[in-house]
Simulated scan of single mutants.
Amino acid sequence: MSLYGKTILIGVTGSIAAVETVRLIHALKRKRAEVQPVMSQAACKIIHPDSLTYASGRDTIVQITGHVEHVKYCGDEGLADLFLIAPCTANTISKIACGIDDTTVTTFATTALGRKMPIILVPAMHHAMFRHDIIIKNLETLKKSEIITIDPRIEEGKAKIAGIEEIVLWCERLLSGRPLAGKRILITSGRCEEPVDDIRVLTTRSSGKMGRELAYEAFRLGGDVTIIHRDEVIVGRNVHATSALSMKNAICTLMEEQVPDIYISAAAISDFAPDYKPCKIPSGIPAIIHLNPLPKLLDLAVGTVPVTVAFKLGKSAHEEVELLFRKGVSMVLANKPENLGSENGQYTIIDSFGYEQADGSKHEIASMIFDRIIAKHL
């Protein structure tokens, strides 16, 4: 998602993580957002305001003047679309929770809360401070005011600022209009590995990139995302699966918990499982491996989930699409072998409304897929 036309006010407080702010501003500007920095006096002791002025292209606000900058950006007719406080110290968390506005950043926060504009806090501090029961209580208080907190990374005794990609994704989510709000999206992604012996596996060249981009796009659009795969995404719910059987079990468990609104089968699920050979098949001599067909996991969702999306790989994809539609699949992505493991792809989106060519980066293709789901199937 592009943040074109959006103004993000970024509040910087007195954590050493303030040194990451220049990179964060650049990341937001790459998404075409306008970024206006605001710094507390404590933050100015860690990083110079000129650094943020240079990164953003706007004069950094370090004090409230007769121009009433907090009203200009966060008042009822304010210019800002989102207030992002990154990093946010324990001191700032507690002041906002108690309605204290004795710093530039907290004055902006008080005004933003009164307007009920979107606010994101990105805490960064020592872990002992972050797990303080009063800080925890204050974060809960802020949550009741619909303030989003992006959890820090707990490493080396510190609650370190969240990664830049995660912060940007949350900004996109809050500014997307959230057309998928309240929708549950289940995605299977990446390759499966079927054991041949104790050393070898049968697998595919799938990298899981398409599945990850689909998960991120669903998150941007406000959806409640669960992804079943062998990897990790930084937002949503990760469910680990390495084989067709473990993926099947995960799908069944999740479907029993709650049927999703959208199911996307982007995984290169194994069509066959070899007869497992204990230990290691000797090398240097011919070996015969017997392959047993595996059930189609898509059948677990079709007819139960309102919107189902399948990926069909191979030259015969178009001929097999009708069979998938007769099963009840809502949309098919005709895939090509060269798409596997690539950053880019060429797909044909096929549904009952017709055909659409989707070429470009997998991020762009994920956006096109959800645009069509929202426009045609929800």
Rank of each mutant, 00 (worst) to 15 (best):
E213L: 00
L214T: 06
A215C: 01
F219N: 00
F219L: 01
L221A: 00
G222P: 02
V225W: 10
I228F: 05
I228D: 10
H229D: 12
R230P: 05
D231W: 10
D231T: 08
E232N: 10
V233N: 09
V233R: 07
V233W: 08
V233G: 07
V235P: 05
V235K: 04
V235G: 06
G236C: 05
G236W: 10
G236N: 06
R237D: 08
R237G: 08
N238F: 07
N238L: 06
V239N: 07
V239K: 03
V239F: 08
V239D: 08
H240F: 14
H240D: 08
L245A: 12
M247N: 09
N249M: 14
A250M: 11
I251A: 13
T253W: 11
L254Y: 14
L254Q: 14
M255Q: 12
E257M: 10
Q258N: 14
I262L: 03
I264P: 07
S265A: 15
A266P: 07
A266H: 11
I269E: 14
I269Q: 09
Y276E: 11
Y276F: 15
K277V: 15
K277Q: 15
P278F: 13
C279L: 14
C279A: 14
K280A: 10
K280R: 11
I281M: 12
I281P: 05
S283P: 04
S283I: 08
S283H: 10
P286I: 02
A287I: 02
I288V: 09
I288M: 04
I289K: 01
H290W: 06
H290K: 10
L291W: 10
L291F: 12
N292W: 05
P293Q: 02
P295L: 03
P295T: 03
L298M: 09
L298D: 04
D299K: 04
D299H: 07
A301Y: 03
V302D: 00
G303V: 00
T304W: 00
T304R: 00
P306L: 01
P306F: 00
T308A: 09
V309T: 13
V309I: 15
A310R: 15
